[in-house]
């Protein structure tokens, strides 16, 4: 958006004006979405690449909570998405996503109706991360997966966004960034166990210039971390 390091994802449930002005992201929906084609395009590409090798092992059908304008959903082949932003969901629908206007913690889908639930840069914008993760557990099949795309608090990118939050940034003021340990704790509390972690975006903010290969495992200097968790799977040792 306004700078090369700017990025945000939709999923906040805060704010309420009317049916089409639901989230703080609504009023900047077009600008937000344009980031993926402009200054954020390489970051987005790097993040999408990090998901690629994981996808074949994830049971279908797939749902993204906090689907926003459907950028990741379209790139990854996620069929359906939930989000509280009507304007962003319109964009998601144009990208072929089956879109539901709702909050992630609402019980609006049948039990065990999805194979995999994704939250991609969404956890940090949730009012009730534990409530949403518990709902994710309810709606995935017994062998189902939870996939989180995260900007972790301890990473250089997380520190930058935390600084922006403290300065009252229009989006990041709503965000709560979590450390790797905090996310793992939330996952476990919801009834999942972590199975795999993939890290990417090792280039620092303002310095992203080339494509990167993701690395398996947790790295605190990675700007983007993917966690895969399952119901009843063995705990990852990291």
């Amino acid at each position: 958006m306004s700078s090369t390091n700017y990025r945000t994802r939709e999923s906040s449930t805060r704010g309420r004006q009317n049916n089409t002005e639901w989230s703080p992201f609504d009023e900047l929906a077009l600008e937000y979405d344009a980031w993926f084609d402009k200054e954020g395009s390489l970051i987005f590409f790097i993040e999408v690449q990090a998901f690629r090798e994981l996808l074949p092992s994830l049971p279908k059908p797939w749902l993204e909570i906090g689907v926003g304008s459907g950028r990741f959903a379209q790139a990854l082949g996620i069929e359906a998405g939930v989000d509280p932003s009507f304007k962003l969901l319109h964009m998601a629908r144009r990208r072929g996503i089956n879109a539901f206007l709702g909050r992630g913690e609402q019980e609006l889908l049948d039990e065990e109706s999805f194979g995999t639930v994704f939250l991609i840069v969404a956890l940090c914008f949730l009012d009730s991360p534990s409530g949403v993760l518990m709902e994710a557990k309810r709606i995935v099949i017994p062998s189902g997966k939870l996939v989180l795309g995260l900007v972790l608090k301890e990473s250089p990118w997380g520190q930058l966004y935390q600084q922006k939050k403290e300065e009252g940034h229009r989006f990041y003021r709503y965000a709560t960034f979590y450390s790797c340990d905090e996310v793992v704790r939330l996952i476990v509390q919801a009834g999942f166990t972590t199975e795999k972690i993939v890290s990417t975006l090792f280039q620092r903010p303002h310095e992203v210039q080339h494509v990167e290969e993701p690395k398996e495992g947790y790295f605190p200097d990675a700007g983007f971390t993917i966690m895969v968790a399952g119901k009843g799977a063995a705990e990852l040792e990291r």
Binding site: N19, P84, F86, H90, R93, A99, L101, G102, R103, Q106
Partner: peptide
């Protein structure tokens, strides 16, 4: 516009 609004009823306009 093909999008079901499943937000809590009190938030429907």
């Amino acid at each position: 516009d093909s999008i079901p609004n499943l937000l809590p009823p009190e938030l429907h306009s």
